[in-house]
Amino acid sequence: MDKEKIFQIVVNHTREVLPELVERKIECSDSLRDLGANSIDRAEVVTLTLESLSMNIPRTALFGANNIGELVGLIYEQLPSD
C-alpha cells in the first residue's frame, strides 16, 4: 500500500462524509476543517478510512495532522510492515 492509494481512500471517504464536495478537487494540502468538516465529520473520515484499510489502531496515533497529506503520512507510518 503506497501513500497515493491511502490518499485516494481518504478523498473518497471525505466526499462520502461531505457530499457537497463532489465536484471539488481535493489536494494533499487541504485540511478537512477548511473543507467544511466539523469534529464529527473528521472522526468519520478517519474511521471509514481505517475500516477500509482494516487498521485497528488508537486514534491518538493520528492526532496532530494539519492537512490531508499529513494525515495520510501518519496512517502510512502505522501500516503493518510485511
Partner: peptide, 9 residues
C-alpha cells in the same frame, strides 16, 4: 464483529 469501526456519529 468490528466494533472498532463503529461510525463516530
Amino acid at each position: 464483529d468490528k466494533a472498532a469501526f463503529i461510525r463516530p456519529n
